[in-house]
């Protein structure tokens, strides 16, 4: 990668000892020097912290960190906690649905917008504005809107449909789906914007060729255009997956993890156990499981990306 820098030409190895005017290798060294703070910050802040957390997960730490090594005991405790099971499962239920619906909805919106409709500017503004809002705001808005006693259910019943029920927010078995609705509302526009930009980069002559060949448009999207955009779609999946793993704020604002702990997610589980329940070892074990999950996702998407490139 360094070989592509414009200043590398002609100089083998690029060591500071190469001949040249004083300013030349002075400037090269300056470029390295300015990166040092960032490198230190990252090494300590990211990788130091990650190592520290991982280390803590193997100790008997509870309210205070301790250095007594207990092996996988914290992990065993973690997996014996029903709350963790709910949180971990929710990550996949919420995550799977969130990613699937964001993608499907976002792609459909982008394709619809790509049909040369008028008012594209306004539509894009409407579809994308939720992304400017925080998950806290998103959660509060949907909490209010889906609140069974004041929101949508009340409204529809007021219209005369007395038997209309939409009380998912207060049902432990359904509340997690309301998170999906709010999440999709927040992020589908992002997928739309990314895919729409991708659709615009498709060579116009391909569309002309398809018309000469008499290929129906839906077939072109399915067989040609979306496969062409697969790198872009992969990026969308990765971005959305990051949201899922980090999705602390949406849960806090919308359900607080409830009813009970039915909408708990690992992100919230970890924060709660660090700061309000003061169970540092257990929280660290949970955090480490999150870390492994994200590494697996990255590994798979990296492999998928490489396979496409090959």
């Amino acid at each position: 990668m360094a070989d592509t820098t414009p200043f590398s030409g002609g100089r083998r190895g690029g060591s500071a000892g190469s001949p040249g005017p004083l300013g030349r290798f002075g400037a090269d060294n300056m470029a390295r020097l300015v990166l040092v703070p960032t490198i230190l910050l990252c090494l300590i802040g990211y990788y130091g912290s990650i190592a520290w957390t991982t280390g803590l997960s193997f100790t008997s730490s509870s309210i205070l960190p301790r250095s007594e090594f207990v092996g996988l005991e914290q992990y065993a405790r973690l997996w014996s906690e029903p709350r963790w099971h709910v949180a971990f499962r929710n990550m996949f239920v919420f995550g799977g649905l969130y990613i699937a619906f964001c993608l499907a909805f976002g792609i459909l919106l982008a394709i619809a917008m790509d049909q040369g409709v008028r008012g594209r500017t306004l539509l894009q503004t409407v579809f994308l504005y939720p992304i400017a809002l925080s998950f806290i705001v998103t959660g509060l808005a949907w909490q209010w809107f889906l609140n069974p006693t004041t929101g949508l259910q009340e409204f529809v019943q007021g219209l005369g449909f007395e038997n209309f029920r939409f009380d998912w927010l207060s049902r432990p078995d359904r509340a997690v789906y309301t998170l999906v609705v709010a999440g999709v509302w927040h992020s589908a526009g992002l997928v739309m914007a990314i895919v729409f930009a991708g659709l615009g980069s498709v060579d116009g002559e391909i569309w002309r060729a398809s018309r000469v060949d008499g290929v129906p448009k839906w077939r072109m999207y399915l067989r040609v255009v979306l496969p062409m955009l697969s790198p872009v779609l992969l990026v969308c999946v990765v971005l959305l997956a990051m949201d899922v793993v980090k999705s602390y704020e949406l849960v806090v604002a919308m359900t607080g993890g409830g009813p009970g702990y039915s909408t708990d997610l690992p992100a919230k589980f970890v924060v709660d156990h660090y700061f309000s329940r003061a169970n540092i070892g257990l929280a660290s074990a949970a955090a480490t499981v999150m870390l492994i999950t994200i590494l697996v996702i990255l590994l798979f998407s990296g492999l998928a990306g490489r396979r496409r490139a090959a």
């Binding site: 060579d203 002559e205 391909i206 002309r208 060729a209 067989r223 697969s230």
Partner: peptide
Amino acid sequence: MVFQSYALYPS
């Protein structure tokens, strides 16, 4: 028809 950019379906 043959196009300038060839317009082959890359996928």
